[in-house]
Every structure is written in structure tokens, then in C-alpha cells.
Simulated scan of single mutants.
Amino acid sequence: MGSVASSAARGGGETALGDLPESCVAEVLLRLDPPEICRMARLSRTFRGAASGDGVWEAKLPSNYARLLAAGGSGGGDDDEAAAAAVAEEMPKKEVYARLCRRNRLDGGKKEFWLDKAGGGACMSISSRALSITGIDDRRYWNFIPNDESRFHTVAYLSQIWWFEVRGEVEFCFPEGTYSVFFRLHLGRPFKRFGRRVYSSEHIHGWDIKPVCFQLSTSDGQQAQSKCYLTDPGVWINHHVGDFVVKSSNDPIKIQFATVQIDCTHTKGGLCVDSVAVKPQYLTKKKLSRTYV
């Protein structure tokens, strides 16, 4: 059908797809998401040219993209931020978008941020090594163990403790929008046997007696709290901590988060703490795995 239409266009003097002005094509691409733009670029030279234009990709970038690129792409500190931002302004915006969609590491590799390829929203992952964990220095209670299911290849494993408390914070210039915070937890110690994923339930106990409390607060006064019993061993679960709103992408916001179970009438153990995730709310609309109160 396409070849017939193309032949008719050439023979009858009608306008073919490749005759469209690049500016008109760019107006169409502005209404598509990034993966669709990349697919449309394959149609013709005109579409390919329009799909590489700065105007198309700058519209998909967060307004503080230069600052984000400086934070993760230059490898420098605060003194280098202005210079890195100037470089970002000179780069093709398609390349800026591609770089921000990769892992951009912070805090010596203990934190990572990236853009969601489809929607352009900013995401962040914070390693267990960047968290403040009560008793982490005592191997009778906690150990860091290797795990290839973690973005950071290491998780904190709890054998047994009376006072369970894990806290963390991050200060970052998130683009404007609503974000959700999650703790990624796993009951049981996962490992592989003969190439198959299994887990040990040896130390799992205490989580069905009292719920775990999840807490969130921000530097501008936002707060959230929820509770949940930990069940379903052998599965990584993203436990919802709460949501917060960023109103200005130019001002850093500090978020503090925690998961605690400090009822000292019983011990608890057999838990892996992988990381904390911060994601745009539009990515978290799926049904949550737990009922929170």
C-alpha cells in the first residue's frame, strides 16, 4: 500500500511524505514521546533530520537539565558545576537526553539518578551502603552480602536484631512534579544453587508480630507515614513510603526516609535491604503489593 501511494505521489505530482517541511515534521514529533520519535526517524531523511533537532529534544528535557548533567556527567564538584552547565548548553539536546537516561552516579557510586526513557521523569536509587542502619557495624546483626539482583550488587542482610531502624536522606534538584519513595526489601537470603535462584529462610522471624513503619519528610515540611506487615519471603518488594511534591526544579529539596520496627519485646531477622527508590508518580500507578495503613 505504501509503495502504491508513493508511486501515485511521484506520478501525479502529489505531495509525498518526504516532501513535508522539516519544521512541520518537528511539530508532529513534539507531540510524541521519545521512543516514538526514534521510530519515526526511520521513515525518511526529513523525519531523521527533524528527530535530531534541538527544539524537539529540549521540549522533552526537564527545565533543569543542565544542572542534572553537571551533577552526574562531569564528575566534578561544586566548583565545576558552572563550567559543566555551559558545556551542557552547547551539546546537542538529543545527546543530553541520552546521557541523562544512563546511570549517573553520585556520592562515590552509592547513589544513581537517570531519566525515564519514555516519560522523561527523573528517577533515583540509593544503595543500602548510603543508609544509616542501626547495628550495621556489628556482624552478629548485619552483613553486607553480594547480590546480582541489586543495581549496586550488594545488599545489607539482617540476621537478628531487637531494634530495627534504617534511615537515609538525599538532597537533590528534582524536576518539578510528584514523586514516590520506596524501600526495596526481601525476606530471606537470596542466592543461586545449580544456576537456579533460591533463598534461605533460616533467619526469617518476627515480622508477623508487629508491622514495620515507613516514614518520609522533606525540607519544605511535607510528611508521610505508613505501616505494613512484611510477608511473602523470596520476593523483592518495593514498599511504598510516601509521596512528595517538587514545586521548583531550581531549588534543591532534602528528603529524609526511614523504615523502623523498634518494639523490643521480640527479635526480628532474615531481611535484606537493597535500596531506596525515588520515582515520578506516573511510574508508580500500578497496584501496590501491600495494604498500607
Results as ranks from 00 to 15, higher is better:
285 K>Q: 08
158 L>W: 06
127 S>A: 14
291 T>P: 07
93 K>C: 08
275 S>L: 03
64 N>A: 10
108 G>T: 06
259 T>K: 08
143 N>W: 13
58 E>F: 09
16 A>R: 09
248 S>F: 10
253 I>Q: 10
160 Q>L: 04
27 E>M: 10
270 G>R: 10
10 R>C: 04
188 G>F: 09
264 C>R: 00
284 T>W: 00
149 E>D: 06
174 F>M: 05
130 A>S: 10
275 S>I: 01
170 V>R: 08
274 D>M: 02
251 D>L: 08
119 G>R: 08
184 R>Q: 09
150 S>C: 03
130 A>N: 09
253 I>F: 09
208 D>W: 00
254 K>G: 13
234 G>H: 07
133 I>Y: 07
222 Q>C: 10
8 A>E: 00
19 D>H: 11
110 K>A: 13
264 C>K: 01
133 I>G: 02
191 F>K: 04
12 G>Q: 02
206 G>V: 03
271 L>A: 07
228 C>G: 11
127 S>H: 07
6 S>N: 03
75 G>M: 06
100 L>T: 12
92 P>R: 12
143 N>Q: 14
142 W>V: 05
127 S>R: 04
157 Y>D: 04
174 F>A: 03
107 D>P: 03
279 K>S: 01
229 Y>A: 01
105 R>P: 00
121 G>N: 01
112 E>S: 10
234 G>D: 05
144 F>T: 08
163 W>A: 13
46 T>V: 15
33 D>Q: 14
3 S>I: 04
65 Y>N: 06
3 S>E: 07
238 N>D: 13
206 G>A: 02
204 I>C: 09
261 Q>A: 12
282 Y>D: 10
237 I>Q: 06
151 R>G: 01
157 Y>N: 08
212 V>D: 00
184 R>E: 07
143 N>Y: 09
250 N>D: 11
240 H>V: 12
13 G>K: 00
176 E>F: 01
116 D>H: 14
278 V>A: 04
43 L>D: 05
195 G>F: 05
140 R>S: 05
159 S>F: 14
189 R>A: 11
280 P>F: 03
20 L>D: 08
276 V>M: 05
30 L>I: 01
290 R>E: 01
99 R>D: 06
113 F>V: 05
208 D>P: 04
18 G>T: 07
86 A>W: 02
133 I>S: 00
91 M>H: 07
266 H>E: 12
165 E>R: 15
156 A>K: 04
124 M>S: 09
210 K>H: 13
263 D>S: 14
226 S>M: 07
228 C>H: 11
146 P>R: 08
74 S>Y: 14
167 R>I: 02
68 L>W: 13
176 E>R: 01
257 F>K: 12
67 R>H: 15
149 E>A: 02
209 I>D: 06
60 K>L: 06
255 I>S: 01
293 V>R: 11
242 G>F: 07
